[in-house]
Simulated scan of single mutants.
Amino acid sequence: MHRWIDIETPHGPIRGWRAEPAGPSKGAVLVIQEIFGVNPHMRSVADRLADAGFVALAPSLFDPVEHGVELDYSDAGIQRARALVTALGFPRAMDLLNASAEKLQMEGLRVGAVGFCWGGTLAYLCATRLSLPAVCYYGARSVPFLDEHAGAPLMFHFGADDPSIPAADIEQHREKQPQAQVFVYEHTGHAFNRDVDPKVYNAQAAQTAWTRTLDFLETQLR
């Protein structure tokens, strides 16, 4: 079953896209959006996780600022998205993710996180601040937080040709989080998992990263 649900948070109710497996679950995964909201692509990621056996929940993080935001990948969409990210801020975003994780934990589910772009950094903070095992896809804003202690296992996916995450930044992830799994995909740029956007999608890198992600989640949420 795939549907919108309501999530109570310290900043008021927000929506979340919840996808459930057909059979018994392997655990639960927070799907943390790119800057474009819980749009069709993010919902499809949650649906794929449900197909793989997980309960997936994608909280609509912009709801406290503007309800129901779903943006495209145009220049105008990017500008609006960046303004929403600034207006929300990291502290409120983490409050929303904590409330979402607690909702799943109250159901007796072990919870992990998978995030993309801005959400990749938020997924990293789920490991350091909420002690959730986390998979971080091309989180370009994580460097200022890399001295935080991770209370749960971490996996990072980066494109070698991502201009927003240069090689020196990737190396800082390795140095400051040496226990984490760090994967770099050659001839691959930013947002390589975004299969609805042919400008950035890299099928080979996306499939390899997805297989690694599912293996990680199955191990950590077992």
Rank of each mutant, 00 (worst) to 15 (best):
A150H: 10
G151R: 09
G115E: 02
R110M: 13
E107H: 09
S131W: 10
A134P: 12
E102I: 11
L154W: 08
S142R: 07
G112K: 03
V135T: 10
G139N: 06
E102G: 05
S100H: 10
T121G: 01
A99G: 07
G115N: 03
V114K: 01
E107W: 04
L154D: 07
R141I: 02
G120D: 03
P133S: 15
S100A: 15
P144K: 03
G119C: 01
V135W: 02
L146T: 09
G151I: 05
A127S: 14
L132Q: 07
R141C: 04
Y138Q: 02
P153G: 13
T121L: 05
W118G: 01
A101T: 12
A140P: 07
G115Q: 04
G151E: 12
F116A: 00
R110H: 12
A127W: 01
V135K: 01
M155R: 14
H149S: 14
D147R: 14
V111C: 05
L104Y: 10
N98A: 13
F116R: 03
Q105M: 15
G108M: 09
A134V: 10
C136L: 12
A101S: 15
E107R: 13
V135F: 02
N98C: 12
S142W: 02
Y124A: 04
Q105T: 13
A127F: 01
L122V: 02
S100F: 05
G120S: 06
G115T: 02
L130N: 11
A140H: 15
A134T: 11
L130S: 10
P153E: 10
A152Y: 09
H149Y: 06
A101V: 08
A140I: 10
V111G: 03
A99Q: 08
Y124W: 06
L96H: 06
A101H: 09
N98I: 08
V114W: 00
P153C: 14
N98V: 05
V114Q: 03
G119Q: 00
S100I: 06
C136A: 15
W118C: 01
A152K: 10
V114G: 01
E107M: 10
L109N: 04
L125W: 04
F145G: 03
A101D: 04
L154I: 06
G120Q: 07
M155A: 15
T128W: 03
F116T: 00
R129W: 02
P133W: 10
A127K: 00
G112T: 08
L132M: 13
G120C: 00
S142C: 12
A140C: 07
G112M: 05
L97E: 04
D147W: 08
C126Q: 00
V143P: 04
V135S: 05
L96Q: 09
R129K: 14
C117R: 02
G112H: 11
G112E: 05
S131R: 09
V135L: 06
L146I: 08
E148N: 12
V143C: 03
G120K: 03
L109H: 11
A99V: 12
V111L: 11
F145Q: 06
P133A: 14
N98P: 04
E107N: 11
A123I: 04
A134I: 10
C126S: 05
K103D: 15
S100C: 07
C117E: 02
L122H: 01
A113K: 08
G119Y: 03
E102Y: 05
